[in-house]
């Protein structure tokens, strides 16, 4: 299979997080990003349940069952971390204080509409969590997802068919096949090695254009 593995998508996103950034991690794929941040950069991870300065999973024997991240996984706090209530956490989130939110996605539209909370045909009670607050609040929204569904249907579309999380919020899309900037349409910044632009366009449901300096998307161990 051409392109990156899921873990490599997380690696690729981590390479773009700037030194000093305050970053929220959505549930799912984004939670695997932090270990891949280059060691010379200080990136502060926020968790919606009131943590700023989230560290890695605890060593065995040191777990605190109440110290969890947004995905309810056990975490630690780094030196310099702080804890706040849900009110203050969503003040940070909604009030534009976070530089980047990394979110999973079901679908993204050519205008940057995001659908990541509800699929068609899911009859269980719906859950939205903090997704809508993050989508409208962070300065930039980067999504991490497979380029297509398991059955090969495109997830990047002219219009989302699933219920929206927020309109016009996604600024960058990272998939196993490409890195795409949402800026007046969809501009392909990187394309997986072994894949040409026409092949990428065929598995994408919205019109793409290559960046003038479009580069190969590759994982470097």
């Amino acid at each position: 299979m051409t392109g990156l593995s899921r873990e490599q998508i997380s690696w690729r996103v981590a390479q773009d997080l700037p030194d000093g950034a305050y970053v929220n991690l959505g549930i799912g794929l984004p939670t695997s990003v932090p270990p891949f941040v280059p060691p010379d950069r200080e990136v502060v991870f926020q968790s919606e349940n009131g943590l700023l300065g989230v560290g890695p999973a605890p060593a065995p024997g040191t777990e605190d069952p109440e110290l969890v991240n947004a995905s309810k996984q056990l975490v630690t706090l780094l030196p310099g971390a702080s804890i706040c209530s849900h009110s203050d956490s969503f003040l940070m989130i909604r009030g534009g204080h976070l530089d980047i939110a990394l979110l999973g996605a079901y679908q993204v539209s050519a205008q940057g509409d995001l659908a990541n909370w509800l699929t068609e045909g899911d009859n269980k009670a719906p859950g939205v969590g903090g997704a809508m607050d993050l989508a409208v609040g962070a300065k930039q929204i980067w999504t991490l997802m497979e380029h297509t569904t398991k059955s090969g249907e495109p997830r990047i579309l002219e219009r989302c068919s699933y219920a929206l999380t927020a309109p016009r919020c996604v600024t960058r899309i990272y998939t196993n096949l490409a890195v795409i900037e949402v800026a007046d349409g969809l501009q392909v910044r990187e394309i997986a090695e072994g894949l040409d632009f026409a092949a990428l366009q065929r598995v994408t449901g919205a019109k793409l254009r290559p960046a003038p300096d479009c580069r190969p998307l590759r994982f470097v161990a």
Binding site: E48, S85, H86, S87, S89, F90, I93, R94, N123, K124, A125, P126, G127, V128, G129, G130, A131, M132, D133, G137
Partner: peptide
């Protein structure tokens, strides 16, 4: 929920905190 025996009001998490 499926049997409509409990009502669900789904509220985005930050909106929930702020409404409170």
């Amino acid at each position: 929920y499926a049997e409509r025996k409990v009502e669900l009001e789904l509220v985005p998490q930050g909106t929930l905190a702020e409404r409170i």
